[in-house]
């Protein structure tokens, strides 16, 4: 991490901070880890907890591939530091299935062929789970607008919208 040791413009160096111990509940399991302040939640999940289902796309909050649910709300895990989330309940794509049964959204994505390369899919799934929980979308236009934070470079959008619609309808019935 040579970059973190670079001197500041005034020539001073900042003493390396102590790692900070935080507690997270990740996919229902309590996890404790010591992290430096600059470790994003995304990097903590992937590099420290081995949960590589959450993808690092742009690392700048522009693509949505890193979307996870924190205390039930969808956020970009690349745009928050892990230390800021101390005590939070985090759900990643690995936590969507229950007891070996796919989450209705995962099944709907398969039913509708809602992915090609799969790189955006875990973010799409977590984002869609957040969308359904928010209860603000019912029409195709509303789904498209409220899913606009998740880019799909393969262009599978029509199938993604269809899959989300199916999951919404199944949940309602």
């Amino acid at each position: 991490m040579a970059r973190t040791r670079r001197k500041r413009p005034n020539g001073q160096t900042i003493p390396a901070p102590e790692k900070i111990t935080i507690s997270l509940t990740v996919n229902g399991a309590p996890r404790e880890l010591a992290v430096a302040p600059w470790v994003t939640l995304l990097d903590a999940l992937r590099e420290r907890l081995g949960l590589t289902g959450t993808k690092k796309g742009c690392d700048h909050g522009q693509c949505g591939a890193c979307t996870v649910l924190v205390d039930g709300r969808r956020i970009n895990s690349c745009m928050t530091f892990a230390v800021m989330q101390d005590g939070a309940k985090v759900t990643t794509v690995e936590g969507l299935a229950r007891d070996g049964t796919l989450h209705p959204l995962q099944q709907a994505f398969i039913d509708h062929d809602a992915f090609q390369c799969g790189s955006c899919t875990s973010g799409q799934l977590c984002s869609a789970a957040g969308l359904i929980a928010e209860g603000r979308a019912s029409t195709v236009e509303e789904i498209r607008e409220l899913m606009s934070g998740n880019l799909c470079r393969c262009g599978a959008y029509p199938n993604i919208v269809a899959a989300i619609q199916q999951a919404m309808e199944r949940q309602r019935s």
Partner: peptide, 9 residues
Amino acid sequence: GASAQLRNM
């Protein structure tokens, strides 16, 4: 403005 995820944060 932004996206649903960013507005949540």
